[in-house]
């Protein structure tokens, strides 16, 4: 499903060149739930953006769902994003002036398929809102929803195009612990239904929900094994770094 080989990415700022990703290799199979842990600024969001086709400026090879993203132009990447991935962001990124239903149907604007009529868009948006248990609040604007509800609207929007995988960037970062757990439970349900999930977070407790764990540090990706001691130690280390 996802294969990264020698992915490198550097930023230049006033203090010089900063190598965020320094030869990242990763393989994720279809249906997996993978979490990537890392401290703030470690490059985990950058990695997620590269996998999701939002960032096409990198070195190395990225293949997702059989498509070589490193060879795609902007238009190809747009089509790829629309058809293959769904993004869930920490800050929800909902449009406050329109209803939950219209927010969820936003990808339908850019759907080139024959089923992008207004009726089918509304039908699909209603369906996914029901799937995230928000069918009673379809016409509410984001301002009138709680944080957890907003994130569920954002997840519904990500699910609208029936993507093959969800890419979640700190999905619980703006939620309280209880609401965060609800969102993670929703991810588990989706994963059980066959959805591939790739989540980046700095919260070790949240990351534990994933089937496989990776740690991104100094631009390199390291898998955290299943052995509980190592697992806990690494989680603790990541959590400590995040807290610094």
């Amino acid at each position: 499903m996802i294969r990264l080989t020698g992915v490198r990415k550097a930023y230049s700022d006033g203090e010089g060149r900063h190598q965020v990703l320094d030869g990242v290799d990763l393989e994720v199979a279809s249906g997996e739930f993978v979490a990537i842990l890392g401290s703030s600024g470690s490059g985990k969001s950058t990695l997620l953006n590269i996998i999701g086709g939002l960032d096409g400026d990198f070195e190395g090879e990225v293949e997702v769902d059989g498509r070589a993203l490193h060879r795609l132009e902007d238009k190809g990447l747009s089509r790829f994003r629309g058809a293959t991935v769904g993004f869930v962001f920490q800050s929800f990124n909902l449009i406050s002036e329109i209803s939950a239903l219209e927010n969820v149907g936003l990808p339908g604007w850019f759907d080139r398929g024959v089923s992008s009529s207004k009726a089918s868009v509304l039908e699909r948006a209603t369906e996914v809102l029901k799937a995230v248990d928000l069918s009673s609040k379809t016409h509410r604007r984001p301002d009138h929803l709680s944080g957890g509800e907003r994130q569920r609207v954002a997840i519904a929007r990500a699910l609208f195009s029936n993507p093959k995988m969800l890419l979640c960037d700190e999905p619980t970062g703006n939620l309280d612990a209880s609401t965060g757990r609800d969102v993670i439970d929703l991810f588990r349900v989706l994963n059980k239904k066959g959805m591939t999930l790739l989540m980046v977070t700095h919260e070790a407790r949240i990351a534990e929900a994933a089937g496989r764990l990776f740690r991104l540090s100094d631009g390199r990706l390291q898998e955290i094994t299943d052995e509980r001691d190592d697992h806990s130690r690494l989680l603790g280390q990541v959590t400590d770094e995040a807290g610094k």
Binding site: S78, R81, N93, L106, P107, W109
Partner: peptide, 16 residues
């Protein structure tokens, strides 16, 4: 700006 970013994330091309 952020909304345009969301549009791009859900599949909008530059021309869109």
């Amino acid at each position: 700006t952020r909304e345009i970013g969301v549009m791009r994330a859900v599949g909008a091309t530059r021309w869109d």
